[in-house]
């Protein structure tokens, strides 16, 4: 069971790692690259807490092998904000109280961004159908749906920052937290 070299770009930064073939992408991100914003909530590709973007589209990283991501571009929640500026979908989740415990939130936000990329002006029903692969136990989805609706008013809600612009998002959290103090 030899290890396999994988080269991939995560949030605009290139990584070359040797992995055992069974390593799940989510564990590569979390345990090897230290990007713990992506979560694991189930074993069955059901909950969507592990949702990231793979080559620009939302996938469940618990059901993608790290080796399958060879040569791909991955964006995680840490790479969503453009430097200090929150992504419009992050902003809307905050504004509309679209999260409580926060565990499903990174996956939910990554899914919502992809949803808006394909459908910039969704109806409530389209939003609800579009989030069917992401479970939340806290919010009853009400404010999540509201947040996605509100984010859709922003012209770039379906866009993620160009790779490289935001590096891996390191440091963004702290700065954003401080920005929050003035809000």
């Amino acid at each position: 069971m030899s290890e396999v070299p994988v080269r991939l770009s995560v949030n605009g930064r290139t990584h070359e790692v040797d992995v055992e073939p069974r390593l799940l992408l989510v564990h590569l991100l979390r345990d090897r690259l230290g990007l713990t914003g992506t979560h694991v909530g189930c074993d069955t590709t059901s909950c969507g807490a592990c949702t990231v973007h793979l080559d620009g589209e939302s996938v469940k990283s618990c059901t993608v092998l790290a080796v399958q991501a060879d040569g791909c571009e991955v964006t995680t929640i840490e790479g969503l904000a453009d430097g200090d500026a929150l992504h419009p979908v992050q902003e809307a989740f905050w504004e509309d109280h679209g999260l409580q415990c926060g565990f499903c939130t990174p996956g939910m936000i990554m899914r919502a961004v992809d949803l808006l990329a394909h459908d910039p002006d969704p109806t409530e029903e389209e939003i609800r159908r579009g989030l069917e692969g992401n479970l939340c136990r806290c919010t009853g989805y009400h404010n999540i749906v509201r947040a996605v609706k509100d984010a859709a008013r922003h012209p770039h809600a379906g866009r993620i920052p160009a790779p490289g612009v935001s590096a891996d998002g390191a440091g963004a959290g702290r700065e954003l937290a401080q920005e929050g103090l003035g809000a």
Binding site: T45, G48, V59, K60, R111, E132, G133
Partner: peptide
Amino acid sequence: IADQQVRNR
């Protein structure tokens, strides 16, 4: 089929 993340793969 399933959900969009699954359909994306």
